[in-house]
Design a protein around this nucleic acid. Structure first.
Lengths: 150, 150
DNA sequence: TTTATGATGAAATTATCTTGCTTTGTTTTA
DNA sequence: TAAAACAAAGCAAGATAATTTCATCATAAA
């Protein structure tokens, strides 16, 4: 774990909020000159503390009409079974996240599709055909009062 | 829902991958001149299809050592109970996501803390003191083979 | 005290963005 | 079919912003 001073933390906070702010404006907000600010940002990138930048898209406008969290249980807990499941799931574009979790199920997936019909298809074609899948529990998202990672 | 042509979709894909790519480079990748490309990007922003840009930070390096998905059940399903719970939870910085889901529980939270100790504290101080909370089921994330929203 | 190190700000340079105008291609209308 | 009307593209110059360079200052070790 890396310890950062106040200014660098401030830089990260600003960039998380607006990743495309100009360097001059960022410098202004954190109280540094443009060059000093840029050096810090580049250093943060070099240290991989800033892993990258991405545009936040409006899913609704783009036709993502169905988001679901899916808990998946495996019938086999061997390494091979996990690797097989993970690589199958990772290839599916509908699966935006795949977390290996503690509890009665092994995996929690976030699946985004255009609509429930498409989800059903994913459910059948992808989950239904994956080896070792023992149980599937779908939780459709009705709303997200908070989503800082969006 | 808005229909986009191939080029605009390509632009979105590139910007999602690298939100800080220069306009010239982006134009090059999508096969447009810089000015035409910029106009499209600005239009996408104006239409709120691109909601913004953000830096992707390395949580591990910054001391996020414990990530958990927490299923929360409420004892009351009135609108008031939901609003109260949501506003309490929204204020907690540890809660990065709060989804209202179908199924036996009402909410699925993503909670990020420095370590398990801090999670325990969140569990007790925040969830434990929220009105209407009937059940809490914690799933600690052991790993994320895929996390496109990170 | 001297020296080395690291970080800063100002200025110069380089790259990139942005805008107005022209051109191209497509659709509409006579 | 031809001309008009429109939309989107490219080009190029001027405006902005990013990046490098360099001199300075503060701090800590020798």
């Amino acid at each position: 774990m890396i310890e950062l001073d106040k200014i660098s933390k401030r830089i990260l906070r600003e960039l998380e909020l607006n990743g495309r702010i100009s360097n001059a404006e960022l410098a202004n907000r954190v109280g540094l000159s443009a060059s000093a600010c840029l050096r810090r940002v580049q250093e943060l990138e070099r240290l991989n503390i800033i892993k990258g930048y991405k545009a936040v898209l409006n899913q609704t406008e783009l036709g993502i009409g169905c988001i679901a969290y899916v808990a998946v249980g495996l019938s086999s807990h061997t390494k091979d079974a996990q690797v097989a499941f993970e690589s199958a799931i990772t290839l599916s574009p509908e699966v935006k996240e795949c977390h290996n979790i503690t509890g009665p199920y092994e995996y929690l997936l976030r699946v985004e599709t255009t609509d429930l019909i498409a989800y059903k298809k994913f459910h059948t074609d992808v989950l239904g055909t994956s080896a070792h899948v023992a149980s599937i529990t779908t939780h459709v998202v009705m709303g997200s009062p908070k989503d800082d990672r969006a």
